[in-house]
Computed example of a mutant assay.
Amino acid sequence: MHVWTRAKRLAAVALLSVVAATACGGPGTHVRADGKLSFTVALIEPDLTTVPLLAAVDTLRDQGHEVDVVELAEPELAVEGLAKGDYAISAEATGPALSAIEQDAPIKIIADVVGNQWALYGRSAVSSCDDLNGRPFGIFSEGAVATAIAKDWVAGECGAGKRPDYLTIGGSDVRAQALASGEIDATPLEISDAVALESSGASGLTKVVDFAETLPDLHPQTVYANTAFLTQHRGVAQEFVTALVREHGRINADPRHLVALVRKYLPEEDQEDVATTARRYRDAKLFDAAALTRRNVQGTIDFFARAGVIERGMTTRDAADLSFIEGASS
């Protein structure tokens, strides 16, 4: 099944209206009289995984740049804005970015947001894919990355003719509740929702498969940027990536740093499970903005080609510019 068809459509529309890159790095980027930049970063409903990005933005602001952050409902909207040059940088689902890059959108992946944090949780009686044959299996949407990951696992692990009954029932937190109440027998969850599920006292559940282990080269959430911005304001782009790498390093050194970032940037977030979630991220080594390599970027591309998001043939060189994370590590 082909997923992210909306992403492809939006990217195509965006490409028809892309403004030719100017010396300012796109219509949404301006050089001020003092030589500092004014530009926009687009994020999709910021959560615990994106607070390091907000801290990196503040580092640029401290250096005198004017950086606006806009919150969008869908990654496709960020991709469209990047292609037009309205936004300089964004960070979210990798699939829509690759779909746009396939259509020659001026976008490059430059860093990682968070590693593959998805795992499949199920009722205690579920120990294999075959146990889910005909059973209710919760998904967010047909086009969601977690759905693509889950269906990839089903295709490889279920016996001939055996498939779960996919039910579209909402976000990771909603699906966690549905699993706890017995409405579904399995669903892919993010770490934060798995922690919330555990702390709620839900019983009779098990982790069926950790997709970080079965798909080690998959990076479903990445940072990407407008290529004109990267070319014409390379120094600022490097400052941003370096700041992000350092924020991730601080989290890995002490997960309490992530707790502090959540408290600062998402004060309305339920703080009860944040400390546990932060330790889980640190223990799993999921926060590493510089984790991208030629191999795992190609592995990510190959996964999305297998999922039908893009055609086969794209290479790491087509999709990413890894020189910024190399520069951050030097």
Rank of each mutant, 00 (worst) to 15 (best):
residue 190 E to F: 13
residue 195 V to R: 07
residue 196 A to L: 08
residue 196 A to R: 14
residue 197 L to A: 06
residue 197 L to T: 08
residue 197 L to V: 01
residue 198 E to G: 07
residue 200 S to Y: 05
residue 200 S to K: 12
residue 202 A to V: 02
residue 203 S to Y: 04
residue 206 T to N: 14
residue 207 K to A: 00
residue 209 V to F: 07
residue 213 E to C: 05
residue 215 L to Y: 15
residue 216 P to I: 05
residue 217 D to P: 02
residue 219 H to Y: 10
residue 220 P to Q: 01
residue 222 T to Q: 11
residue 223 V to F: 08
residue 230 L to A: 09
residue 231 T to P: 00
residue 232 Q to D: 13
residue 234 R to F: 06
residue 235 G to E: 15
residue 235 G to V: 12
residue 235 G to N: 13
residue 235 G to D: 15
residue 236 V to A: 14
residue 236 V to G: 11
residue 236 V to R: 14
residue 239 E to K: 14
residue 241 V to L: 04
residue 243 A to P: 08
residue 245 V to W: 03
residue 246 R to Y: 09
residue 246 R to P: 01
residue 247 E to V: 10
residue 249 G to P: 02
residue 249 G to R: 09
residue 250 R to D: 11
residue 252 N to H: 10
residue 252 N to C: 06
residue 255 P to I: 00
residue 256 R to N: 14
residue 260 A to V: 01
residue 260 A to Q: 09
residue 261 L to W: 06
residue 262 V to W: 07
residue 262 V to T: 13
residue 262 V to D: 05
residue 263 R to T: 14
residue 264 K to V: 03
residue 265 Y to D: 06
residue 265 Y to S: 06
residue 265 Y to M: 08
residue 270 D to G: 05
residue 271 Q to L: 06
residue 273 D to E: 12
residue 276 T to H: 04
residue 276 T to M: 04
residue 278 A to Y: 04
residue 279 R to S: 12
residue 280 R to A: 14
residue 281 Y to S: 02
residue 282 R to E: 12
residue 283 D to T: 12
residue 284 A to C: 03
residue 284 A to F: 05
residue 285 K to T: 13
residue 286 L to I: 11
residue 289 A to N: 09
residue 290 A to L: 08
residue 291 A to E: 10
residue 291 A to T: 09
residue 292 L to E: 08
residue 294 R to M: 08
residue 295 R to T: 15
residue 295 R to K: 15
residue 298 Q to D: 09
residue 300 T to R: 03
residue 305 A to C: 07
residue 306 R to N: 12
residue 306 R to I: 03
residue 308 G to P: 11
residue 309 V to Y: 04
residue 309 V to R: 01
residue 310 I to A: 10
residue 313 G to K: 03
residue 318 D to R: 00
residue 318 D to C: 05
residue 320 A to E: 02
residue 321 D to C: 00
residue 321 D to W: 06
residue 325 I to P: 00
residue 325 I to G: 04
residue 326 E to K: 13
